[in-house]
């Protein structure tokens, strides 16, 4: 291998390396983008245990498929906005359409912001307990809720639903308070007796998620 041959080879390959570098960067970026990480309904599933799911039972939508499961957490908002725990990306569903809460009596659907929810063809201004046949409707679309077996056990630890108008809005910890971390709200009193690993100074209502399964050591 003489110097000129090596130099020629290295010189030609320098273009190859430039192209390979660009290719690797782009491929890596594309791959990262395609697996962007939990978003919307998947976030709900990984962030909190899913107690069940919504399924599109009637209607046609470009972005919602009848086969897809939209996981529902123990409690959370449902709507088309990205900030919602159950994201139903359709124009017919309002940005923040309603709130779903698991209670002792079952899954409660509550309207938000003084609006109403449409269930089985009728409008309700108060919370509605959902049944296996209940169709939640927005526009021309109707969704049906399915709950897992295990949700019943969880439900036993949940509060009873107030019979007055709607469940109280959960108080979010105010980000404006300096360094303040809320210890837990009274609603979570039942879950306060959690094991050491379960997270601690955190948002209320997320106890069960941290007390993860069998102790591996």
């Amino acid at each position: 291998m003489t110097k000129p041959i090596y130099d020629a080879l290295a010189l030609t390959l320098s273009y190859l390396f430039m192209a390979l570098g660009v290719g690797i960067a782009l491929c890596g970026a594309a791959w990262a983008r395609s697996e962007r990480g939990p978003r919307g309904s998947a976030a709900a599933a990984s962030g909190a245990e899913a107690v069940g799911y919504l399924r599109l039972s009637r209607g046609v939508s470009k972005r919602l498929s009848k086969k897809e499961l939209y996981y529902v957490p123990v409690e959370g908002t449902v709507g088309s906005g990205r900030a919602c725990d159950v994201q139903l990306p359709s124009a017919e569903v309002p940005g923040k359409a309603a709130r779903l809460t698991l209670t002792q009596a079952g899954m409660l659907l509550s309207p938000v912001g003084g609006g109403s929810v449409r269930v089985n063809g009728a409008d309700y201004r108060a919370s509605v307990l959902l049944d296996e046949d209940t169709q939640i409707e927005w526009g021309s679309l109707a969704f049906q809720l399915y709950l897992y077996d295990g949700a019943k056990e969880l439900a036993a630890a949940r509060p009873t639903p107030p019979l007055s108008d709607g469940v109280a809005e959960r108080e979010e910890p105010s980000p404006r308070r300096l360094f303040r971390i809320k210890r837990g709200s009274p609603l979570n009193a039942a879950a306060a007796d959690d094991k050491y690993e379960s997270g601690g100074p955190d948002d209320p209502g997320e106890g069960p998620e941290e007390s993860g399964g069998p102790d591996n050591d």
């Binding site: 000129p4 130099d7 020629a8 010189l11 030609t12």
Partner: peptide, 10 residues
């Protein structure tokens, strides 16, 4: 350019 360099090398 690349061609110039290569020819010069050889």
């Amino acid at each position: 350019g690349l061609t110039t360099r290569l020819t010069q090398l050889f």
